[in-house]
């Protein structure tokens, strides 16, 4: 059976909130190392990869592999009943028909309990090759969201150029052009505002802004986001959580001309 308790319901609420517009039905794959999810969006342009490691739960118990087939809209309805600060426990039998969720308030003795029906989801897993990215950029997640939403007002696509001069996000639209350039920057007092650019070779890639703006819904999970690029391969956008848990998005580039 599975028993997994989060000290803060907000972690799962934020993760599900960040992916529910990209993915509707998906398996939460539970094993002794934690709970993982891998799913593509309907158009097969983006891939979501979540790992909530066993260490992120206290306690965590999962005797054998269990796939929890979840509709994320339904899960969202149940999670809305949890306060951010509540402790959240997930429970399931070995071959479950339903997922049991318990929300416990720390402030008072309120306990709420829900059973969510599960579904059989035949999901194909993709092998993601280990990649040494040519450019790895770490920046405030709020800054990345701002750049993506600002540029989406002008264009459907953004070109990301990483070079020794910095990283430039630029777009061309019917009403005109826009570009934002960031350089490495260290803020001693507020390291969450740091911008770090690691580059082994220059990169230039174009991506759909609609997807990037969607990924930015995960900004609530982490002050910083890491974006990794290599020419002609999907972009990796990673929001790191405690205990090496993470939420990753991969986005196929636009190629041509």
């Amino acid at each position: 059976m599975l028993e997994a308790k989060l000290d803060q319901a907000s972690i799962l609420k934020k993760v599900v909130d960040a992916i529910k517009d990209l993915v509707q039905d998906c398996n939460f794959d539970c094993n002794d190392s934690g709970i993982a999810l891998q799913a593509m969006d309907n158009s097969h342009v983006a891939l979501v990869s979540m790992a909530l490691k066993a260490e992120s739960f206290q306690p965590y118990r999962c005797d054998r592999n269990i796939a929890l087939g979840l509709n994320l809209t339904s899960l969202t309805k149940v999670l809305r009943a949890a306060q951010n600060e509540d402790m959240l426990t997930l429970r399931a039998e070995d071959a479950p028909d339903s997922l049991n969720l318990v929300f416990e308030s720390k402030a008072d003795d309120r306990i709420s309990e829900y059973d969510l029906k599960l579904m059989d989801i035949d999901q194909e897993h993709l092998g993601i090759p280990e990649t040494e990215y040519a450019a790895t950029i770490t920046l405030p997640s709020s800054e990345f969201r701002r750049i993506c939403t600002d540029l989406m007002a002008l264009s459907e696509s953004v070109t990301i150029d990483a070079s020794k001069d910095g990283v430039k996000f630029s777009c061309t639209g019917d009403i005109g052009n826009g570009a934002v350039t960031l350089r490495s920057h260290t803020n001693v007092d507020k390291p969450e505002l740091n911008v770090d650019i690691e580059l082994s070779e220059p990169v230039s890639l174009t991506f759909s802004l609609k997807y990037l703006v969607n990924f930015c819904k995960a900004s609530a999970l982490s002050h910083q986001v890491k974006i990794c690029l290599s020419n002609e391969v999907p972009l990796l956008v990673e929001y790191a959580l405690e205990n090496q848990s993470h939420l990753r998005f991969y986005l196929a580039p636009k190629i041509g001309d």
Binding site: H44, V45, L47, E124, H125, S208, A252, P253, K254, G256
Partner: peptide
């Protein structure tokens, strides 16, 4: 213009 690629063109079915 540039064409949107599929993620399936990069990641293989495991």
């Amino acid at each position: 213009g540039k064409q949107q690629r599929s993620i399936l063109g990069f990641f293989s079915k495991a």
